[in-house]
Amino acid sequence: MTNTNEFISLLASKLGRPTPTQAPEPVAINVPQYRSSTRKDRASLFLDNWHALGGKGMIVKSPEETMQCLKEWFGDQQATWPNKQQAIVAWDMLPTVAEFAFAALEWPLVRYSQEAQSSPDRYSLAAQAELGVTGADWGIALSGTLVVNSSPQRGRAVSLLPPLHLAFIEASKLRDNLFDVLEELTSLGMPPSAIEMISGPSRTSDIEMDLSIGVHGPIEVYVIVIDD
């Protein structure tokens, strides 16, 4: 087994110097960044890009609109899901508007991290669910991307294993570009164990360059932007 110091000093010698102990000066980065003029523009660009990726998305202003939206998107399917009690798996805590809407619709939510004791049990729970519901920490307007941090209350598999994924995001969490998100992430200090940046459904072009949606991850993705 190669010793770390030995390995590093070899590199230093290849670079023709002793191993540095101080961090090098960071390089100046000078790229033009996209900036939207208003919050409204940002939200509509986010949704345009999300739609272009094949996702469905809507801006809602009230719990009523949220219910309307959920019924429109999932109402018919929900009626036919075989095991309704276990069909929707969600984070422990969703934005208030979301909690209210699901409660009012009387669509039961399975709480991912509370329902089962062991990881494998949780995975099968999520794998058997029809819809995974999460919040999001940021959205990136320029690319139509959701940025989702993991935490003890926020299972990573919820946005991964069910065939449908629905995310709620407050409009105030939308950012113009990835740069801004990374700045905020950095200021949080130690990152969570997973930051998932999701841009549309799972896809592949591996067979004859033919685009195919829904290989391993969600087949359909939905986002509700809460106008806060």
Partner: peptide
């Protein structure tokens, strides 16, 4: 613009 999934992992899990 970005791939469907860009994942930043800081393992192991907490």
């Amino acid at each position: 613009k970005f791939s469907s999934y860009t994942t930043i992992l800081t393992p192991p899990k907490q």
